[in-house]
Design a binder for these strands. Structure first.
Lengths: 241, 241
DNA sequence: CCCCCCAACAATGCATACGCTAATACGCCA
DNA sequence: TGGCGTATTAGCGTATGCATTGTTGGGGGG
């Protein structure tokens, strides 16, 4: 293997991504490959064989297989019987499906949160406000990387406010699928100057206990996000992410 | 093993539940156990060891393990490292979570369907109308068993109308979790005389292209179902299904 | 020159073997 | 008699071997 190939090898320095050690090899392999896919180190369309991946990760086929099955359940790869594993691309249609789900799930989370009689004194609420303030600062500083991460955190925290664990898990699984598209389209996005205000409005509706408005506001917020990403894909001809 | 115990053994005559044969042993084991759980042959709280189950199904631990992991992802069992597999019970809180998800997912499906400009001439629409008519007949005949199955089919068909494959898959996974509760509370339910009319109203809103109304109508429909089931659990003291 | 069939190969699905960890039971000491 | 420490063992995570089956490439026939 040449030096150039070695440097291009996504598996080159893999071991440091190690898990705390409490997990199984299957856990570790799953987390590692998921990370590689989400960070776009393993591009959509990438194909490999079960045994080959196992070798490259230095584990046997049994935990590797388990990890791949989980990745398939995550909707990140396709596992075809004699053709190996293939990292799934994201078409515009896929993203529409994903964002339609996100709109519905997150807006419902906001509605449910509003129905719980949440108080401004709760630490979770404070954390959300802090996150939102940090987003403002990151945006002012032009740090879109941080901004995106904080946006993620805000949405995660909001869904957690719903108090519905299953809703949280489903939403998380949908987020994972949209993650690559969000990251890849970020550089093309206009500065998201209204996001924080929209977040604040949703939070206020939740604290007022106005589920109806919280739902509508957050639904509209996500819809704008969807339109934005789909528009970017259209105009920048990003056929397959 | 005595005769009585043998007759009580859920694994007694298992083989007939066989899959077409095209599937793997893991597929078969997953389908078989899922069926046993959904039909309440394996009661909530039932516990067993990986190896024991594999033996009783006549397969080795490898495909058994895969099947169990899938069941865990389905939310039907819990897989604790040294304590084996346990069929999860459904608390009232679980059912609230599940029905909150169903409300949101199905109502969104109705809204999306309304936005697709669906025509009355489509075979899918005709199938839904037929299903609904059959529900009326089943109800008139007092056949609640058939009615429930047709109701399932109607809701499945409706979600399929959304054209969102991911939404369909998520909804299906949530249905599976609620299935036992629906079956077990059925004998206590009052005759669902309004369901069919509500279904028809949703369909008409979809055909009119009125997403807003389709969403609201279906959401309300599911909400009533949720209130009904939660009420039954409350009044009949069905703590854990 | 193209198409079809057969054979060799390779990947997978399954079975099984092994070592490790933790849970349980027993015995000893207080 | 009760609590703690140790020993045993059961279950699980992992590795590996084997057989089945689909795929691919080459050769032969049309």
């Amino acid at each position: 293997m040449t030096v150039a190939q070695h440097l291009a090898d996504p598996f080159a320095d893999l071991r440091p991504v190690s898990l705390p050690g409490g997990g199984s090899l299957a856990d570790w392999a799953h987390a590692t490959l998921k990370d590689l896919i989400l960070r776009n180190q393993l591009r959509p369309g990438f194909r490999a064989m079960e045994a080959g991946l196992a070798d490259r990760l230095g584990i046997s086929r049994t935990p590797m297989r388990e990890a791949l099955l989980r990745l398939q359940a995550d909707g990140l790869v396709e596992l075809t019987p004699r053709r190996g594993v293939r990292v799934l691309p994201l078409s515009a249609g896929d993203l529409r499906e994903i964002y339609q789900l996100l709109c519905c799930l997150e807006a419902t989370a906001a509605e449910l949160a509003a129905g719980r009689g949440l108080d401004i004194s709760l630490p979770e609420i404070a954390a959300l406000r802090d996150t939102n303030a940090a987003m403002d600062r990151a945006l002012a500083a032009g740090n879109l990387e941080d901004w995106a991460q904080l946006d993620d955190r805000f949405h995660r925290g909001l869904v957690a406010l719903s108090g519905n664990g299953r809703l949280q898990r489903v939403a998380a699984s949908v987020w994972v699928q949209s993650h690559r598209a969000r990251m890849l389209t970020m550089p093309f996005r206009p500065r998201p100057v209204h996001s924080c205000d929209e977040h604040r409005a949703v939070l206020e509706a939740i604290l007022r206990g106005d589920g109806r408005v919280a739902f509508e506001l957050h639904n509209a917020h996500r819809r704008r996000g969807m339109a934005l990403i789909l528009g970017l894909i259209e105009t920048h001809k990003l056929a397959h992410l």
